[in-house]
């Protein structure tokens, strides 16, 4: 096994140790101490940037959610307001119509009763006229048929009795 037998040669161990010290020293100081921290710093910076960007994106997402929520609330509120305005207008219109209808109704009723009164008056006057004409006619008829003159008041009473039962 050369690993053991070469110890007999005076240069073997010294050269091995010298060169591993030199090369590993180079690797440690130049690569391990010199380059590795810079690479790690790059990785850390990237990780931090990714984390920051993610946080920013999350915040933006939350803000968008809030905005959407407030928009929804606003639109709900305005929809409710519009609905209320519509129902109010409808109610007012219905009430107005009712009021106007009532007024028209009373006017019509007044007119109707006035007309009725007129009709009644006309009827009574017509009735009275008919009575006097009928009494006169009855007096004439009686005088023509029997030659008896009856007093106008008697004829009137007799006609009244017939007309009014």
């Amino acid at each position: 096994m050369p690993q053991i037998s070469q110890f007999a040669e005076s240069w073997y161990a010294a050269s091995q140790i010298f060169w591993v010290l030199l090369t590993f020293g180079f690797v440690f100081f130049v690569i391990g101490r010199g380059m590795l921290p810079k690479i790690e710093a790059t990785v850390d910076a990237r990780d931090r940037k990714v984390a920051d960007d993610l946080a920013a994106a999350k915040a933006a997402h939350a803000a968008a959610d809030n905005l959407e929520e407030s928009y929804r609330q606003q639109s709900d509120a305005s929809r409710a307001a519009a609905q209320k305005a519509i129902t109010d207008a409808k109610d007012k219109a219905a009430k107005d119509a009712e009021k106007r209808l009532a007024k028209v109704d009373t006017e019509l009723a007044d007119k109707l009763s006035a007309a009725e009164a007129d009709v009644n008056a006309a009827r009574t006057s017509a009735m009275a006229e008919i009575e006097s004409v009928a009494a006169e006619a009855a007096g004439d008829l009686v005088a023509k048929l029997s030659g008896v003159k009856i007093a106008a008041a008697d004829a009137k009473a007799a006609v009244k009795a017939v007309l009014h039962g």
Binding site: S10, W11, A13, A14, S15, Q16, F18, T23, F26, V27
Partner: peptide
């Protein structure tokens, strides 16, 4: 001292690896 330090094949490969 009485040890000789030489450039060896082993040293060469260590340098190449580094």
């Amino acid at each position: 001292g009485n040890h000789e330090v030489a450039f060896t094949t082993s040293a060469m490969w260590m340098v190449i690896a580094g």
